[in-house]
């Protein structure tokens, strides 16, 4: 087979290995010469690095992070912005964020994820002069880290309440069975401890008999599997699904649209994904929150060390009621009940 080397083949593969050696030698030579000509950065600039633990595209929460940071940076001439995507391997995040801190050029590193406060704290030990801002995360009493989070349980309760209303309603796609569905990309602490219980609690506020069918795709991209899980749920009697599974959401929407059942959306306005199928959407204003926080950081007024929690009353979490696709596809009875619940939570 092709991995066996013998005779001539072995000799020619030795050339490859030899070439590798020469290559490495040349690199070192190049490094030696270039190290003689290092120039200094201007001192009065303010450098912001946005570290995205994942990829920006397709993730509303990171898209908003990037957009908020860009609009903050655009307002000041001396601010340089650099957005770095960390990829999906959690094990590499600490190393990548450390290598940002190691340059010593970043005035502040901003990132967003419940897991990031712990990582930033660890990096902070290695590079004690580096400042961090963590959105969507929580950590108190580290005087170089500022954190800000949203009440995800409340957000899930809003979705859950509408799911409860829809499944017990007379809407065309709703059946007699009181089961609602939640499809997650993976099972992670916030999902299992806050979002899934919140989603169910919201539904139980409508009718205590409602049950939750929870399934996980296993990753954040397998749209075909998302569709498969949705079909399996539908055949088990689910008539409304909340997908929180990144790219796999698309599969859920497709399957739901075909079966004529309903989908809810999380974190960003999703009505346009499939008008008439997506009947409810909560959103968080991460772009505004990022902008506000960064402006404070640039002005030098950000109280590092503080940890802030934003709930429904702050306006940073909302249930989107004023979208035309919501008002035209959802019966008024359901909308009124959802509005009452929303006002009650505030």
């Amino acid at each position: 087979m092709f991995f066996l080397f013998s005779g001539n083949a072995e000799r020619s593969h030795k050339i490859t290995a030899f070439r590798t050696l020469t290559f490495l030698g040349l690199i070192l030579l190049g490094v030696f010469f270039s190290s003689c000509s290092k120039q200094e950065e201007p001192q009065d600039s303010f450098n912001i690095a946005v570290f995205v633990p994942g990829v920006v595209s397709g993730s509303p929460i990171y898209e908003m992070l990037a957009a908020g940071a860009q609009s903050a940076a655009a307002e000041y001439e001396h601010v340089n912005l650099n957005i770095i995507e960390g990829g999906s391997n959690q094990g590499e995040w600490e190393e990548k964020i450390s290598s940002l801190a190691a340059t010593g050029k970043q005035d502040v590193i901003i990132t967003s994820n419940p897991a990031m406060p712990g990582i930033c704290a660890a990096v902070s030990k290695k590079f004690p002069s580096q400042y961090f801002i963590v959105m969507d995360g929580y950590l108190e009493d580290n005087d170089h880290i500022y954190t800000l989070r949203y009440d995800q349980e409340q957000q899930a309760m809003l979705n859950g309440h509408l799911a409860g209303l829809v499944t017990s309603s007379e809407m065309e796609g709703a059946n007699d069975q009181l089961t609602i569905g939640l499809i997650a990309g993976q099972e992670y602490p916030d999902m299992l401890d806050l979002i899934a219980p919140g989603f169910l609690a919201g539904a139980k506020a409508v009718d205590d008999a409602i049950e939750l069918d929870f399934r996980a795709v296993g990753n954040w991209y397998d749209a075909a599997k998302g569709a498969e899980l949705a079909r399996a749920m539908i055949s088990a009697g689910v008539d409304v699904i909340l997908p929180i599974a990144g790219g796999a959401n698309q599969g859920v929407v497709t399957a739901a649209h075909e079966a004529g059942i309903y989908v809810l959306w999380f974190d960003a306005n999703g009505y346009a994904q499939q008008p008439g199928t997506v009947v409810g959407s909560t959103s968080i204003q991460q772009d505004t929150a990022t902008y506000d926080t960064l402006v404070k950081a640039i002005e030098g007024t950000l109280p590092y060390g503080e940890a802030v929690t934003l709930g429904l009353e702050s306006g940073f979490i909302t249930f989107i009621e004023d979208d035309e696709l919501y008002t035209s596809y959802v019966p008024e009875k359901v909308r009124t009940a959802q509005n009452e619940y929303l006002e009650g939570l505030k």
């Binding site: 991995f3 080397f5 290995a17 590798t20 391997n89 959690q90 094990g91 590499e92």
Partner: peptide
């Protein structure tokens, strides 16, 4: 979770580049 992703494949690549010679 997933911290070592890719190292198994890279091991194969390295062995192929090195013509299966441990020193190389």
């Amino acid at each position: 979770v997933g911290f070592s992703a890719g190292y198994g494949w890279n091991g194969i690549v390295i062995a192929l580049i090195a013509a299966n010679n441990p020193i190389m």
